[in-house]
Amino acid sequence: MAAADYLARPQVAQCIASSNFIDRLAAAEPLQDFSRAMADTAAAFELSCFAYLALPRTKNGKPRLISTYPSRWTTHYLRKNYQIIDPVIGNALETRPCGGTDIRH
């Protein structure tokens, strides 16, 4: 198999995109670099939108959202506190990556 054919395979392209995403996140300084890395990675995976939500550590804190979703939607989502009832967020909070380590503590 030619190298170009191998690199064109979807799973190889996605692996490369994931690796590039991690490298770019590690080097990201301003918020715009992080947002651009997200948008590029979403495009590489053929996703229409991509979001990163950091939940507050305190009860009165506000979540931080970096997203390629339309700002009208993200403003509505945060204003209505949908992160509290969002099943994707709930599932992520229950997932224990890193060999069972609870990332919430």
Rank of each mutant, 00 (worst) to 15 (best):
N20C: 10
I84Q: 12
F45R: 01
T74H: 01
N60T: 12
P56W: 05
L31M: 10
R57S: 12
M38A: 07
R72K: 14
I89Y: 05
S18L: 13
R36M: 12
S19Y: 04
K80A: 06
Y52N: 11
L47K: 14
V12K: 13
Y52R: 14
H76S: 02
D23G: 09
D33H: 14
R72T: 10
A42S: 14
Y77E: 04
F45D: 02
S19C: 11
A43S: 13
L53N: 03
M38E: 06
E29W: 06
P56K: 10
F21S: 05
A28Q: 04
K59G: 10
K80P: 00
D102F: 01
N60K: 09
P63W: 01
I89R: 04
D23T: 14
H105T: 06
R64N: 08
K80S: 02
F21M: 04
N81W: 02
S35P: 00
K59D: 13
A42Y: 08
A13K: 11
T58Q: 01
T58I: 02
V88C: 15
G100K: 04
E94I: 10
P97S: 15
E46C: 14
A43I: 13
A37N: 04
G61D: 07
A4G: 04
A42W: 11
S48V: 06
A51Q: 03
L25Q: 03
I22K: 09
S19E: 08
R57P: 03
F50G: 00
F34H: 11
P30T: 15
C15Y: 06
A26S: 03
P87L: 00
G61P: 11
E94V: 08
P63I: 00
D33I: 10
L78R: 03
S35F: 05
S48Y: 11
S71A: 11
R72H: 10
G99S: 09
A13G: 10
K62N: 13
W73K: 14
N91L: 12
G61N: 06
S35Y: 02
C98G: 08
A28K: 07
R9K: 13
C15W: 11
F21W: 05
A42E: 07
E94R: 11
T101Q: 10
P87M: 01
R57W: 05
A42N: 12
Y82A: 00
A42H: 07
L53I: 15
A28P: 00
V88A: 15
Y82F: 00
T58Y: 01
Q32L: 11
A2W: 15
H105Y: 09
T74K: 06
S71M: 07
Y82S: 00
H76K: 08
L47P: 11
D5L: 08
H76Y: 06
